[in-house]
Amino acid sequence: MATQTQRKDHPLSMRLPEADLAIIDRAARLRGRSRTDFVREAAVRAAEEALMETGLVRMSEDGFAAFMAVLSAPATPVEAMVEILRRPPPWETEREPG
């Protein structure tokens, strides 16, 4: 007798205006994804972002004091960033005739 595998997926139903559905379908096609995969991925990403924004960070008193000391200390230049910021922007550099 064949055993039946129990599905662990849970259905989610939504009512969307036609315009929303059209833009979702267009974006899903551009990504080569099904509508379901596209919407699931977007919803999970948005949920993760929301959770990260409200996540509680716990640390010891010593850890917090060290964290505040770093934030309160004078900024130290990062040489690679200083070099990049000293370069003229691409629209101000002369191009050689090609």
Results as ranks from 00 to 15, higher is better:
R87C: 01
M81K: 12
M1S: 12
T5Y: 05
D20Q: 15
P90K: 10
R35S: 10
E53W: 00
E83G: 04
A47N: 11
L16N: 06
R45A: 14
I24M: 04
G55V: 01
R45L: 04
M52I: 02
R26N: 10
L30K: 15
T5C: 06
T5E: 15
D62A: 15
E49M: 05
R87K: 13
E96W: 03
D20C: 14
T93V: 14
P11E: 03
V70N: 01
P11R: 07
P11Q: 13
V39D: 03
E83S: 11
E49Q: 12
A73P: 01
Q6A: 14
A66M: 10
D25V: 04
I24P: 00
E79N: 03
M52R: 08
T76H: 05
G55W: 01
E83P: 00
E92S: 11
I84D: 08
R86E: 10
E48V: 12
Q4A: 15
M59V: 13
T3V: 08
L85C: 02
R26K: 14
A80S: 12
L85S: 05
T36K: 09
L71N: 07
S60P: 01
A73H: 06
S60M: 09
P11S: 05
D20K: 14
A43D: 04
A80W: 00
E41A: 11
G98V: 05
S60I: 02
T5P: 00
M52E: 02
I23C: 09
P89W: 04
G55H: 10
A28S: 12
F64R: 09
E61Y: 03
V70A: 13
P90T: 10
F38P: 00
D9Q: 15
V78I: 11
L21W: 00
H10A: 15
T76C: 08
E92K: 09
R87P: 00
L85N: 11
F67A: 04
D20S: 13
A42H: 06
A47Y: 08
M14W: 07
E49C: 05
D37F: 01
E96T: 06
S34G: 12
G98T: 05
T76Q: 11
T93I: 12
V39Y: 00
V70M: 09
L30G: 15
A46S: 05
S72M: 12
L12F: 15
V44D: 11
L51S: 04
A42F: 02
F64W: 09
